[in-house]
Amino acid sequence: MDVFMKGLSKAKEGVVAAAEKTKQGVAEAAGKTKEGVLYVGSKTKEGVVHGVATVAEKTKEQVTNVGGAVVTGVTAVAQKTVEGAGSIAAATGFVKKDQLGKNEEGAPQEGILEDMPVDPDNEAYEMPSEEGYQDYEPEA
């Protein structure tokens, strides 16, 4: 019985440690998101679009440190934060509304985080759909 109880105690310690790591990862992701939003706020009209992409990228980098179902929630929060940063930029006159959601080359930025393969159960990952990809044929 002692062996059984000791095993359960060790398992509990492992769960607590994993929860603490997840909590730490979420806190880091939130900190990076805040950094990115402050970065966007300090940019001029020309830099705002690039700044919004930076927020998304920093958040995406930190999301990889967070495991399990938390990833889905962090990704949703990050996307809403990026959308909010863009709205703030438009409201303050840093950028025109028609410039939001495009990178410096004018290509749409939507789907940055949505296409990231995420499995809350950590069982399997699927690649994003290939609808947006084109076949590449090298020139002879």
Rank of each mutant, 00 (worst) to 15 (best):
M1Q: 15
M1C: 15
D2L: 03
D2N: 03
D2E: 15
D2Y: 07
D2H: 01
V3M: 07
V3S: 12
V3L: 13
F4N: 00
M5W: 14
M5T: 07
M5F: 11
M5A: 04
K6T: 10
K6W: 15
K6S: 09
G7C: 07
L8I: 12
L8P: 00
S9Y: 14
S9I: 11
S9M: 08
S9G: 07
S9Q: 09
K10I: 12
K10W: 15
A11C: 11
E13Y: 05
E13S: 04
G14I: 06
G14V: 14
V15F: 03
V15Y: 10
V15H: 00
V15P: 00
V16Y: 15
V16T: 11
A17I: 13
A18K: 01
A19R: 04
A19W: 12
A19H: 01
A19N: 00
E20P: 00
E20H: 10
K21M: 14
K21G: 15
K21C: 03
T22L: 15
T22H: 01
T22I: 12
T22Q: 00
T22D: 00
T22M: 04
K23V: 12
K23D: 00
K23H: 03
K23E: 00
Q24M: 02
Q24A: 12
G25S: 14
G25L: 13
G25I: 12
V26G: 00
V26Q: 00
V26E: 00
A27I: 13
E28V: 11
E28P: 01
E28A: 06
E28N: 06
A29P: 00
A29D: 00
A29K: 03
A29R: 06
A30N: 00
A30F: 08
G31Q: 15
G31Y: 11
G31C: 15
G31S: 05
G31A: 11
G31D: 02
K32Y: 15
K32V: 13
K32L: 08
K32S: 02
T33F: 15
T33K: 00
K34M: 00
K34G: 02
E35D: 07
E35R: 09
E35H: 05
E35T: 09
G36C: 11
G36A: 13
G36F: 14
G36E: 03
V37G: 01
V37N: 00
V37Q: 00
V37P: 00
V37E: 00
L38Y: 09
L38P: 00
L38C: 12
L38D: 01
Y39G: 04
Y39Q: 04
Y39W: 10
Y39E: 02
V40G: 02
V40C: 08
G41K: 02
S42E: 08
S42F: 04
S42L: 04
K43P: 00
K43Y: 12
K43H: 05
K43A: 08
K45Q: 03
K45I: 15
E46I: 06
E46L: 15
G47C: 09
G47I: 14
G47Q: 08
V48R: 00
V48H: 00
V48Y: 14
V48K: 00
V48Q: 00
V49E: 01
H50M: 13
H50C: 06
H50W: 14
G51E: 01
G51R: 10
G51Y: 11
G51I: 15
G51W: 06
V52I: 12
A53T: 04
A53Y: 01
T54R: 04
T54G: 03
T54A: 04
A56T: 05
A56H: 02
A56Y: 09
E57A: 08
E57V: 06
K58R: 10
K58E: 02
K58M: 08
T59E: 00
T59K: 01
T59F: 15
T59V: 14
K60F: 11
E61L: 12
E61C: 08
E61P: 03
V63A: 14
V63Q: 01
T64R: 06
T64A: 10
T64Y: 14
T64G: 08
T64F: 12
N65W: 14
V66Q: 02
V66K: 02
V66A: 06
V66T: 01
G67K: 02
G67W: 12
G67C: 12
G67A: 11
G68E: 11
G68Q: 01
A69Q: 08
A69Y: 08
A69C: 05
V70W: 15
V70D: 01
V70I: 08
V71H: 04
V71G: 01
V71D: 01
V71Y: 15
T72K: 15
T72Q: 14
T72G: 04
T72M: 09
T72P: 02
G73K: 07
G73P: 02
G73Q: 10
G73T: 08
T75E: 01
A76D: 03
V77N: 02
V77M: 12
V77H: 00
A78P: 01
A78R: 03
Q79M: 03
Q79W: 13
K80A: 06
K80W: 14
T81V: 11
T81Y: 13
T81K: 01
T81R: 03
V82S: 05
V82H: 05
V82E: 02
E83R: 13
E83A: 08
E83C: 06
G84C: 12
G84M: 07
G84A: 15
G84F: 10
G84T: 08
A85S: 06
A85I: 10
A85E: 01
G86N: 12
S87D: 09
I88A: 09
I88D: 04
I88P: 03
I88R: 04
I88Y: 05
A89Q: 04
A89K: 09
A91L: 11
A91V: 10
A91N: 04
A91F: 11
T92Q: 03
G93L: 09
G93K: 05
G93S: 03
G93P: 07
G93C: 14
F94D: 06
F94R: 01
F94G: 03
F94A: 05
V95H: 02
V95P: 12
K96V: 13
K96R: 04
K96Q: 13
K97I: 04
K97L: 05
D98N: 15
D98K: 10
D98H: 14
Q99N: 08
Q99W: 04
L100W: 11
G101T: 08
G101V: 07
K102Q: 15
K102V: 15
K102G: 05
K102S: 15
K102P: 06
N103W: 09
N103C: 05
E104A: 02
E104F: 14
E104W: 03
E104M: 04
E105T: 13
E105C: 01
E105I: 01
G106F: 13
G106A: 08
G106D: 05
A107K: 08
A107Y: 09
P108V: 11
P108D: 03
P108M: 10
Q109K: 05
E110D: 04
E110G: 13
E110I: 03
E110W: 02
E110F: 11
E110L: 09
I112P: 02
L113E: 10
L113F: 07
E114K: 05
D115W: 07
M116H: 07
M116L: 10
P117F: 06
V118C: 06
V118I: 03
V118L: 05
V118A: 09
D119Q: 13
D119C: 12
D119L: 08
D119V: 02
P120F: 10
P120S: 08
D121M: 05
N122D: 12
N122R: 03
E123D: 12
E123W: 10
E123I: 10
E123N: 03
E123K: 07
A124R: 05
A124C: 06
A124Q: 14
Y125K: 08
E126H: 04
E126A: 06
M127Y: 09
M127N: 14
P128K: 11
P128W: 13
S129T: 10
E130H: 04
E130V: 07
E131Q: 08
E131K: 04
E131C: 04
E131W: 11
E131Y: 01
G132Q: 09
G132R: 03
G132L: 12
Y133C: 05
Q134L: 11
Q134G: 07
Q134W: 14
D135V: 03
D135L: 10
Y136H: 09
Y136M: 09
Y136F: 12
Y136G: 01
E137W: 13
E137P: 03
E137S: 07
P138R: 02
P138Q: 08
E139R: 06
E139C: 01
E139A: 09
A140K: 09
A140Q: 03
A140N: 13
A140P: 13
A140H: 13
